[in-house]
């Protein structure tokens, strides 16, 4: 039997090969045939989830509720000590010091990463800004968000903090952070679907011990992770309740 693995489309592009390396490693460790399918966008990925074509997923927190509540997925692990955080940044020449001083009609460069967009929009609220009085500038990647700011095609940009921190020093020197979220409890998670649930404990243990040998550590490194950390059902329920509260 073959299983399908997929990764949230908002993964850092530099880690694309890492996910293929990880998938090969996981097949060897678990003796399962696992096919890695990378979808172009969240829309395509959700269609695959809906059609029950996904058995293992590194999921955006936005999709966790559907995966757990409707599709019977369970959490396995997350990247240890990491959480999804967002940044609102402006061109360094912009004199605004506080989100509260941003004005209606603001042009906001934003990607389609759902959790980052949500966190960014929450951080704009103290300025009385919401979907009705800003102009969204859709951007395929965070580098493009930065370019819109540098070319003054956008007044503010919403970034995944990790991606902002990975921008080149030269680009960052021309931008300024207005606010960085410190939410701590919203994170991507590796989740396992119904067809693989009987192997949940085995796969969990393999992943948790992955950093204990050189090869496993190398694979983790290719993903930009240090090690995996357990996500239990209670932690996942708490995150889903939080996401529901912010999005429903």
């Amino acid at each position: 039997m073959s299983y399908q693995f997929t990764v949230s489309p908002d993964f850092t592009p530099s880690h694309l090969s890492g996910w293929y390396i990880f998938n090969t490693w996981l097949q060897n460790q678990t003796d399962n045939a696992i096919h890695l399918e990378m979808y172009n966008d969240f829309h395509e990925q959700r269609d695959a989830i809906e059609a029950d074509n996904v058995d293992l997923i590194y999921a955006n927190p936005f999709d966790a509720a559907q995966l757990v509540r409707e599709k019977g997925f369970k959490p396995l692990v997350k990247s240890a000590g990491e959480s999804d955080e967002a940044i609102i940044a402006v061109n360094a020449d912009n004199h605004v010091e506080d989100v509260a001083h941003l004005e209606s009609g603001l042009r906001v460069a934003v990607t389609d990463d759902p959790d980052v967009r949500m966190m960014g929009m929450i951080m704009l609220e103290p300025g009385d800004l919401d979907e009705t009085n800003i102009e969204e500038i859709p951007s395929d990647t965070y580098v493009i968000v930065a370019k819109h700011l540098l070319k003054n095609e956008a007044d503010a940009g919403i970034f995944l903090a990790e991606s902002y921190d990975e921008l080149s020093k030269m680009i960052r020197s021309q931008l300024r952070i207005l606010v960085r979220s410190q939410i701590s409890v919203i994170h991507h998670s590796l989740m396992i679907g119904p067809k693989l649930l009987d192997q949940r404990e085995k796969i969990h243990d393999i992943l948790i011990n992955m950093n204990n040998d050189a090869k496993g550590r190398g694979v983790l490194e290719s993903l930009g992770f240090e090690q995996w950390q357990t996500v239990d059902d209670d932690e996942m329920e708490f995150m889903i309740d939080l996401m529901d509260t912010l999005t429903m």
Binding site: A100, I122, M123, E125, P126, G127, D128, D241, L242, D244, T245, L246, M248
Partner: peptide
Amino acid sequence: VKATVIPNVRDGEVVGYTSVRRKPSRTK
């Protein structure tokens, strides 16, 4: 704060509530 509260429903029953508070706009 700007507060949002939702009921946590499990198997069709309310088992509790989640409340999230965020920075409010000064105008509000």
